[in-house]
């Protein structure tokens, strides 16, 4: 009985939990049921970006069959999806749409970065139109390395996501905190992509020093 008690920090996240409820095992059991319900019905969004999308489609097709995990219901609308599989290179031109789609997804929502490009820019990282990892803009839950990850590697990533879902509790997940979750500000297409969260930085940074620094670095290394 005692090991099923929620850890102390679980009750210290802003909720005023009455003392007699503190050791209530009902909440953890509820977590289990809640998690089980979610882990077997993660609906991904039908959302493909690049090469990895082809492997994602293959994962959903007959040989690898996502349906065995309850994930076959690919939803074209973000409003009905639980999971965004960012399958491919995220470009600056596309990131406003991706953030918008993420904001439109209802909670609970998860993001899986599939492949090197979505995780960290991949082989195209150096390009001028490539975002070096979708996690610069939206929070990512699971990273699947590979270029592209094989369907089996993606399935492994999805199982990892199920693991993560299992470890969550209704009390601690960020979207059920008081006040809810703020939507992520949508990046703006300016002379280069502008993240509204960077506005304070603009005052302290001038564009010029950035380049000087990298040039000096490389000269030093050479």
């Amino acid at each position: 009985m005692s090991e099923m008690n929620p850890p102390e920090n679980m009750n210290s996240n802003g909720y005023e939990v009455p003392p007699e409820m503190r050791n209530n095992i009902a909440i953890t059991t509820l977590d289990k049921i809640w998690n089980m319900g979610r882990r077997y019905s993660v609906w991904p969004m039908m959302f493909g970006l690049a090469c990895c999308a082809i492997e994602m489609i293959c994962t959903a097709a007959s040989r690898y069959d996502l349906a065995r995990f309850g994930m076959e219901v690919m939803r074209p609308s973000p409003r009905q999806a639980d999971l965004m599989i960012v399958s491919g290179t995220v470009t600056k031109k596309m990131i406003p749409q991706i953030v918008r789609l993420y904001n439109q997804m209802p909670e609970p929502k998860y993001v899986l970065a599939m492949g090197a490009c979505a995780s960290g820019g991949g082989p195209f990282k150096e390009g001028y139109n490539v975002v070096s990892g979708v996690d610069k803009y939206v929070p990512v839950d699971v990273y699947v390395p590979g270029c592209p990850p094989t369907p089996q590697a993606l399935l492994h990533g999805l199982m990892k996501l199920q693991e993560k879902i299992d470890s969550e509790s209704i009390r601690t997940v960020r979207w059920y905190q008081p006040g809810g979750e703020e939507p992520i500000p949508v990046p703006i297409l300016g002379p280069d992509i502008i993240d509204p969260r960077d506005f304070p930085k603009f005052k302290s940074v001038k564009a010029a020093p950035a380049k000087a620094e990298t040039a000096a670095e490389s000269a030093e290394a050479a």
Partner: peptide, 13 residues
Amino acid sequence: DFELSSFDRHAEH
């Protein structure tokens, strides 16, 4: 070995 998925790329990748 392709079973390399992780929760945190900054620490592990």
